[in-house]
Design a protein around this nucleic acid. Sequence first.
DNA 1: GCTGAAATTGGAATTATTCTAATTCGGGAT
DNA 2: ATCCCGAATTAGAATAATTCCAATTTCAGC
Lengths: 142, 142
Amino acid sequence: MISFDHHSSPAPEELPSELEGLRMTKQRREVLSVILAERDHPTANDVFTRSKERMPTISLATVYNCLEALVSHKLVKQVNFERESSRYCPNLNDHCHFQDEKTGTIHDVVFKKGVKLEDFLELPQGTEVSHLELSLKGRIGY
Amino acid sequence: MISFDHHSSPAPEELPSELEGLRMTKQRREVLSVILAERDHPTANDVFTRSKERMPTISLATVYNCLEALVSHKLVKQVNFERESSRYCPNLNDHCHFQDEKTGTIHDVVFKKGVKLEDFLELPQGTEVSHLELSLKGRIGY
DNA sequence: GCTGAAATTGGAATTATTCTAATTCGGGAT
DNA sequence: ATCCCGAATTAGAATAATTCCAATTTCAGC
């Protein structure tokens, strides 16, 4: 039984020119494809470095702009661990993150099938949760 | 049924000179008492401002030092919402945080009695979680 | 009351991120 | 195809939170 989330890597290229109402510019496409290519939760700076390989003129500001556009259009998720720099994740399913303290590697962790927030949290009724972030740190079993 | 966590305010003053193996200096005592006095999840800067009222010579660096000492000795919890500045919380019980999008107010939210991580997360067996942070945003029911 | 280690301090430094203002791009109308 | 205009990109400056540094100060144990 696999518990950490694994993905079959979809082809990163050939994205439509508009997605979720977001104009897919060269740079946004590049940034998105970097995030899809290596699903290792890169930081903005990682994305910048990788993007420059294929698009040497891209700027860090643009990478930040693109990331913000992709996140707000829900094509990518932003991942935070305490005050570390934000990381980016293409897994759009409901999930959270586990950071291996040994290696720093971040793994996606899925919620058990059918679990609802009210099942494990004492939330006042009527509370509407618009955003949830659950971050774990620890050591992986062997 | 109360769902958000409420506290009876314990007396902030007269803390011992050593706590959890941490030397309780004037400044650490002051910082801790500020956090205990108003349980509104202040930022480091909030703590600095409030501390200065009674201890005008305290420096921001010291506030950061004290907070780090208190957090690492588990007398206070550090609370993060995305990339906002860290906030500090004297509630040592297992709990998480809900930020009201309307007001910015942060509420403690407790886990349902007896709930374990494995009840709602697909964690590989043998995984040891040493740190968990769950942050919610949304709107409160009326 | 000394002494050494730890804590405090003010200011400088760092880091991630955002802002700014100028330029470029690209799609629709002509 | 060309013009136009709003949006996107860019380089660099600015900001904000936090950490670092080096010089004092404190204080617990002798």
